[in-house]
Every structure is written in structure tokens, then in C-alpha cells.
Design a protein around this nucleic acid. Structure first.
Lengths: 334, 334
DNA sequence: GTGAAAGCGCTAACAA
DNA sequence: TTGTTAGCGCTTTCAC
């Protein structure tokens, strides 16, 4: 194994000089820097991560906490995760994956053992059991998702309340008077997962404000569930002319079901989705949607975390503004 | 921060004694052990991961390499990943997530910096560029997937060749004479991803052996692609009475498409899937299938890796036997 | 059965 | 601008 001492010897300098060349934490003459860098190259030197972490009290590793609970759509979670990893690498950090519901104990373990020096927490519930713990931990954290009490936290997420409001406004403006929110699987609401709860709240608030009828219903992520849920919905509320979907995997099946029920989109039924842009554009017809910018959110989460690690302040709550793009799936009410 | 010295002082012993109590690497009197454990408890001591790694040259972290390339079905990958994380924790290891195509350089970085002490590599191609590198790295690795040349490697995967053979045999035994493999998106074949290539090879070999006509076709993972691909397939080969699907996200759409084409399953068309059991059982009708035991494979991969870390031999290639379960989607040819 | 002490490879004072 | 060196917190050899 090549150590910093080997490099120092090869370059004819002190180990500290090598260290400083590598970290850039003090100025080095050009000649010395070149000699050191050449030695590094020749010997194929890589700093030992443990030694560096021990000496500097910085592991350069972030923990990514993804519980993978029932009802969550994995590809969307992984979009966040990928953005987190990519951005972390930009800041020279790696990412430790915490999945299995080790829950609180997992967080305590990795933080108290100094395995990581900051945490990104996903799949946040309104009354998340991890939140009190995060407040106590000796290291910074960022939540992707927003709990009920954000005191002392740093949280980032799409403004799902506004997203739902914009959907309601868009449909109402088009003349729809009776609309429904076809939501996530019920398990997600039962856990009071933040994004689902806030979407529903925004939907209700906007419907009330605009004086139209808004119906909310969860929906499991299978074709049969869509068939059953939509069938029942339209039976009990035959006047519904607009749907807002917040459940990515059922988007395809939903279009099929509407087709099979003889409801044309958008002529008979307007459809709005809250999902990634590419998903909306892949459908036939292309769906009007509010973007879920997973990449941007994951990236901002890491940037906020790095800021905190550098001793800078990060805003308590960052709501990424909702942006509605009208495509081919919404039109004036029949 | 509580250190081992604090614990030693509190218990009235040497730091080495504390270390040995914790590791169990030498025998300790009951009384001493109790005092130390009590001190650990009282002080809430957690060993510092970096210090431990530096002193022992073992980070107790595994790298999980998931490229997340085009055409791969993320939920299945995450099933493997979750099994890897869970099993790693059983052996007191954590998991570092490597996604973004850092490719070779990422592997070199984490291994040469001793950030991890072993690697689990997923999404393996027949001629994977990472394979030569893995042979050279100074640390053990396990592939989930099987490249063309397995010399010097440890690889684990479902026996996809046999899986396809069993599907062909099952359908042939039921009297089908013209069958098709509806495969993964074409990008997966173009990369020569191991599991897809081996499935196709098994399908061809078995069809030839049984003297029936086997047609292979890739299929993108959208409803429209299924509609188009299946439509064309049945137009060009109207005699097809059996389908083998290796593409989880299209299973639902495929059933819809067959229904819309007026082909009843299994009366007019037998359907076999290569997928997780729960997916097969969730369909209507329940699908006959060859199980993809992601949990078992992920678990075995980690177990093999731990064995190698402990200096034990691990088999070069472990093919998890394919198991076909006949359910309601296959029957005698019409 | 237990303790003392020498590192592990690096960072960051402190010194020059 | 560069060098010297004392740790960082732990494991493990050596000694008793």
C-alpha cells in the first residue's frame, strides 16, 4: 500500500506538504506542487479514507435513509436517490445506503460511530418518529419531505399543497365542477406520509375556495384496483369530469380503464398527473401535469447538507414551486 | 464523544481489555466482562468506525454497484439491493451505494482508498468492462449476474438458461408448437446483459431440442410498445399459442393487450413469466412462472462475500436453480 | 486473564 | 513557503 510518507519521500518533501497539496488548504509553490503531484501519479497514491476520517473527523460519507415502505413507488424513490448520489459525488462525498427499517437505531448507529457525517432522510411522515432523533443527533441532516413540525430541521420538497391547488384551479378554470383526486395507496395516507397528506390538503382547500366539489380517494397500484376504484368513483359521482392522479404506476392502467369505460381523454374526462415530466409525456395522450422534479430536489438536499457541513445556515423549509404544464389530457368540461 | 479510554477508566481496566470484550477475540473473566459491558452501557459508548477501520484494516462496509442503465426495471434491482443491505447488516456490515456510471474509476476509488472492503456488482454484461478490473482489485467481490468469462470471479444468479428451457419444456409438453419470448427492452440485449442473453440462449436451445418454433423479440416497457410488439408478433406468426415474458413492467399491459385482441388466457394463449412470485400471483389470471428469487440471490451474494473476507473459498459460479410453478395462465394448446 | 504501548495513515497545529 | 510532530481512537503484539 502506498502511503503519504511514500509520496513525501519520492517528492522530497514533508508529509504535511503532500497533505496540503492534496487538500489545497495552504498555498504551495508551483515547483513543489508539481513534484508532489508527479509523485502521486507515479506511485498511484490514494489517501486512505479511514486515516483521513480519523484525523479530520470527517468521513466524507453521507447516509441516505430510504425505508422503502409499503405503497411507495420505487422508481421515483430511486430517482431521488440517484440525484443524491450524483450530487454527493460532486462534493467529493460517498453515500451509505440505509434501507431496512432499522429506523431510529440505524440512524444512531451510523451517526454515533461517525461512519457518516450527515444524513439525507427520505419518505417523511407528518409525525415521523425519526424527527425528534434528528434534532438530537450531533450531525446535520436534511429531510426530503416535510413533517408537521419543522422546528430545528432542514426540509426540502415539492410544494405539494400548491401542486394540488394548481391542479384544482386549472380544472376549475376549464369549467369542471366535480373533480376527484386519485391518490396513493391507502397505506401511504395511513402513515400520514407528508407529500400525500399535503397534496390532499391542498386539493380540499382549493376545491372549497373555488366552490366546486372535490372527492379524494386512495388507490392501490394494480390494474384491478384502478378498475374498481375508478368504477366506483364514477358510479357514485357520475358528474365527475376531471381527475388528478398522484400515483405513478397507475397512470397507464388508468388510461386503459377510462378507454374501456368509453370515456375519452380529454373530451369526456380531463386528466392531470403529479409526476415526472418524462412519464407525463410518454402517455397517449400526453398528460397535463405538475412536475415532480426529483433530480432538482435531491440535488438541493445535498447542497443544503454540504452547506450545513461547512457551517453555513440552510433554510428550514424549502418548497420547490409547483409548475403545471398543460398538455393534451385536459380541456374544457363537456 | 465517548472513547474506549473513557470506558476503560469507568470499568477500571485497560483499553485493550475493553477492545477484547467487544470483539470477543480473547477470553475474559466474567466479572471483567460484566464491568466493561456495564460501563459501555452507562456511557453509551460506540466504537469510532474510522479508528477501528484504520487500526484493523477493515471498514466493515461493502460497496454495492448498481449502474441503473436503460431498460432495467428499478423495483427488481432494488429488491436485490434491499436483500444485500439486510444481509450485510446481519454480518455487521454497511453498504455504500455506487450508482452513477463512475464505472471503473468508482470501483478503483472506493477500493484503493479502503473505503470498503468488498464489492457487490450488479447489472453484469457478458463482456463487462468492470470484470478485468475486479480481477485486479486487492479486495474480494461478488457479481450478481454472470459474464462470459468467469475465470477468477465469484458470480451468483438465477439459472436463466435453465429458466427459459423449463418454460419451453412446459409449453411444449402442453402441446404448443409455436411460442415466443417477449423479452426485455432492446437496450438490454444490445449491452449483452447477462441475464437477458442467457435467457434467450436457453429459449433457443430448448426450442431447437424440442423441435418447435421459438421466436424471440425484445419489447420496450410501455403499453404502446406492448400493443405494437404483440400485434406484429401475432400478425407475422398467427400460430403462436404460447408466450414467455421476461419483462416485469409489461406484464399488466400484456394481459390487457391480449384481452383487447380477444385472446383469452390460457384458453387461446398460454402465458409464462419469469418474475418474482408475488408479481405472478397478483395478476388475473395468476401467472405460471419461473421465480426470480431476488432476496435469495442478494443474500447468497453477501454470504459468499463474507466468506471470502474471512479467507474462505467461494464457488466461482452459483446458479440458483430455476423453479417453474404452474398456475392459471398456462394450459394445453388450443 | 490482563495491561502497556506501538502503531494504523492521515491532518493540522506549531515552528521556522 | 515548508517541515516537525502530536494526536485522531482503535487493534493487536508483547509482556507479565
Amino acid at each position: 500500500m502506498v502511503t503519504i510518507a511514500d509520496v513525501a519521500r519520492q517528492a522530497g518533501v514533508a508529509t504535511s506538504t503532500v497533505s496540503y497539496v492534496l487538500s489545497g488548504k495552504r498555498s504551495i509553490s508551483g515547483a513543489t506542487r508539481d513534484r508532489v503531484q508527479e509523485a502521486v501519479r507515479v506511485l498511484g497514491y490514494r489517501p486512505n479514507a479511514s486515516a483521513r476520517a480519523l484525523a479530520s473527523s470527517r468521513s466524507n460519507v453521507l447516509a441516505l435513509v430510504i425505508p422503502l415502505r409499503a405503497g411507495m413507488h420505487v422508481p421515483v424513490l430511486m430517482q431521488f436517490a440517484t440525484a443524491v448520489v450524483t450530487t454527493a459525488r460532486r462534493f467529493d462525498h460517498d453515500v451509505l445506503l440505509l434501507t431496512a427499517d432499522e429506523g431510529r437505531s440505524g440512524l444512531e448507529r451510523v451517526s454515533q460511530s461517525a461512519l457518516v457525517d450527515a444524513l439525507v432522510v427520505m419518505d417523511v411522515e407528518l409525525h415521523d418518529e425519526r424527527v425528534p432523533l434528528l434534532r438530537e443527533l450531533p450531525m446535520p441532516s436534511v429531510l426530503i419531505g416535510i413533517p408537521a413540525d419543522t422546528e430545528g430541521l432542514t426540509c426540502i420538497d415539492l410544494d405539494f399543497f400548491a401542486a394540488a391547488e394548481q391542479c384544482v384551479d386549472h380544472l376549475t378554470d376549464l369549467g369542471h365542477r366535480e373533480i376527484a383526486l386519485l391518490g396513493t395507496p391507502s397505506a401511504v395516507y395511513e402513515r400520514q406520509t407528508g407529500f400525500a397528506a399535503r397534496t390532499m390538503a391542498g386539493f380540499q382547500a382549493a376545491a372549497e375556495r373555488r366552490g366546486i366539489q372535490g372527492i379524494e380517494t386512495p388507490c392501490e397500484s394494480t390494474f384491478d384496483a384502478v378498475l374498481g376504484t375508478v368504477g366506483e368513483l364514477l358510479r357514485e359521482h357520475p358528474g365527475i369530469t376531471g381527475l388528478v392522479v398522484q400515483n405513478e404506476p397507475i397512470i397507464g392502467p388508468l388510461l386503459d380503464v377510462l378507454r374501456s369505460l368509453g370515456r375519452r381523454v380529454p373530451e369526456d374526462m380531463s386528466l392531470l398527473a403529479i409526476c415526472a415530466d418524462d412519464v407525463a409525456e410518454r402517455q397517449v395522450p400526453k398528460l397535463s401535469s405538475v412536475t415532480l422534479p426529483a433530480d432538482e430536489i435531491g440535488q438541493q438536499a445535498v447542497e443544503a447538507l454540504i452547506a450545513k457541513l461547512d457551517g453555513n445556515q440552510a433554510p428550514a423549509v424549502t418548497l420547490v414551486p409547483a409548475q403545471l404544464t398543460a398538455r393534451a389530457s385536459t380541456s374544457t368540461a363537456p
